[in-house]
Computed example of a mutant assay.
Amino acid sequence: MTHVITSLCLRDGGCVTVCPVECIVPGKPESEWPWFYIDPDTCIDCGACVPECPWEAIFPEDEVPSAFKAKEGQRLSMPVGTPGFTEVYDGVNHEGEPVHLEATKTLKAGEVVDLTPAIEINKKFFKEGPGYSAAS
């Protein structure tokens, strides 16, 4: 079992800092891979990353919600060009560095979204993506 970072990720990076096995990497280029990703072959399922995420974007793989009920103002991020994701997000990460994402969408309180596609997207990142591995 592993943990999965979902489309609620806005690249805070606190998860990377606390991971004891360094299995979390930022997607690059951000326009195609806007989240952080957890290497399922390296993750030890310790859960240290979960409380560090201010966006509540990280779940155990078998608990990623298919009917996530959003809080007011929560955002989803997706690759540039994804239909319906037209808002730009400019914020800062946990170290105060700028975060710029070009394809986000703000959710309304109570809006229900399926976060389970993140499971396959995370797997695809490590199998077919930009060649990242936790060791690189």
Rank of each mutant, 00 (worst) to 15 (best):
E120N: 13
E120H: 08
P98R: 13
F125R: 09
V92N: 04
K124A: 13
A103M: 11
K105R: 15
H100E: 11
T116R: 15
T104A: 11
D114F: 07
K123E: 13
V92A: 12
T104E: 10
L115Q: 05
T104K: 10
T116G: 06
K127E: 15
D90Y: 06
H100L: 11
N93F: 03
V112I: 15
A103N: 12
D114G: 08
G96K: 14
L115C: 12
E102W: 03
G96M: 12
F125N: 13
E111P: 05
K124I: 08
H100R: 15
T106D: 00
I121L: 15
E102I: 01
G96L: 04
E102P: 04
E97A: 13
E95Y: 09
V112Q: 11
P98F: 07
G96E: 13
P117Y: 06
T106L: 01
E111G: 06
E128V: 01
T116H: 08
I119Y: 03
L101H: 03
I121D: 07
L115V: 03
P98Q: 04
F126E: 08
V99T: 07
A109E: 15
A109S: 14
T106W: 00
N122R: 09
V99E: 05
H100I: 11
E111M: 10
E120L: 12
G91L: 11
P117A: 08
E102F: 03
P117K: 11
P98G: 04
L101V: 02
F125W: 12
A118P: 06
K124S: 13
K105N: 01
P117I: 09
L115E: 09
K123P: 03
L107Y: 14
L115T: 09
F126M: 00
E111F: 02
V113F: 03
K105H: 07
T116N: 04
A103K: 06
T106G: 00
V113E: 01
E111V: 05
K108Y: 00
K124H: 15
N122T: 08
F126R: 02
E95K: 15
L101I: 08
